[in-house]
Design a protein around this nucleic acid. Sequence first.
DNA 1: AACGTATGTTCACTCATCGAGAACGGCGGG
DNA 2: CCCGCCGTTCTCGATGAGTGAACATACGTT
Lengths: 249, 249
Amino acid sequence: MTAEFPVKATHTSARVLRTVAEADGVGVSELARRVDLSKSAVHKHVQTLTALGYLTREDDDYHLGLALFELGTAARDRLPVYEAALPAIDRLADVSGGVATLLVYESGRAVAVAQTRANGSLSPPIREGDGGPLHATAGGKTILAYRPDEEVERLVADGLDAVTQKTITDGDALRRELQSVRDRRVAFDREEYAEGWQAVASPITDSEQQAVAAISVSGPTERMSGKTLEEDITGLVVSAAKSIENDLL
Amino acid sequence: MTAEFPVKATHTSARVLRTVAEADGVGVSELARRVDLSKSAVHKHVQTLTALGYLTREDDDYHLGLALFELGTAARDRLPVYEAALPAIDRLADVSGGVATLLVYESGRAVAVAQTRANGSLSPPIREGDGGPLHATAGGKTILAYRPDEEVERLVADGLDAVTQKTITDGDALRRELQSVRDRRVAFDREEYAEGWQAVASPITDSEQQAVAAISVSGPTERMSGKTLEEDITGLVVSAAKSIENDLL
DNA sequence: AACGTATGTTCACTCATCGAGAACGGCGGG
DNA sequence: CCCGCCGTTCTCGATGAGTGAACATACGTT
């Protein structure tokens, strides 16, 4: 048995969870349609997940339950880089006036694990708990630059989806970009993930020069113009990431 | 079939998750011992949970995966009270110099959903993502005071565990305490949950006067002495909770 | 007011599957 | 060198996950 999900029922429950997360507030019938299962089967899953606290019932609609928040918090708190980076991103947000984010790499994805917004800053396209594509964000690109070549090639082979018109979709362009990231330990995102949003990021690597995480500062294009972004803020982000990296060794 | 967990395999996977959360970094054999299953069965669960991103493998040890953080964040973000209370708890922490916490009630438990610490404040006994007993914390007691009597009676019948020597363990004492909470919309925790820690809390109720959440400020006993706690800070907490409550109507 | 159709819930039934147990290869300590 | 532990794989049998039909209930329409 070399299936990807040896325990099918668990996989099904996970699909139910994911569906509830997407369509917040759904009933059994609607859920059964979306996951393509019989009402009775879904009913059993929903009942189990509710008893576990993974779901919560309001009237006849289900929502994600706070037991997931407990587990999720534990998943975040165990990361050494989280505690180490917290003060730094607070300070970064403060002095830059933008949004500072800690992205953590895990099995092919980068998740925004902590985020601080300067007061008055707008809501960024990637928020705490979101996972972003590795080729289309500043943080993702810094991480990718410090991952094995095979991983990059796999990504390229799978196809680089265009998120905006400026997203890098060409393999060679990406490879060049990653090389330049390795030269300077910085990546920029010039509206490659969201129109009107830019970002700078720098990687946090382990002792084998493998990416563990990335720190980024982002903001709306009109507020973070070329000079400020590429000179002042860039320096701050790079040195913050380096300093966290040293703390972790 | 009126079992509590109709889908047994999902329940089992949940037990695996909980066990991994408790003993961070465990292998298959250790896990099999703790959940009392065969190695092969645990292996299957761990494999599916890893494929789902709910677990992550480091060497041969498993840890909670960031997919749980994604779900957990979504579970928190959907709560209207969360967004509404964020600025208030930031401000509360700032002016009080202590730790401000938003506790949300869900199916018999109260979970710390957001927490802000004044800079320099110590690490509190209940942290973001933790669930606390309803009878032994300030926030828990305010919530309990605005829940149906049956729920209180059920809790009393199940037995009020002593967390510290000062925890309320007597049913009548609890009932009296809750009545006084209803009079003033405040509860205090005088080292009932952790030695050396005190707290004030005030409830956030819905249009039917049912507790939805609670706001609390806590700090070490020596820093939050009687007068400051019971007069200055109390007023701030009560009015903050009231103001959030109004925003939600 | 009676209908039609949506919902959530319960019930037998059946085949796939979850879990047990034994066996394998690999690693590390005595 | 070998014993013991580890993670992984296999076969196999009991059980439980999922189906589909039936039920009660609520709602909007005719």
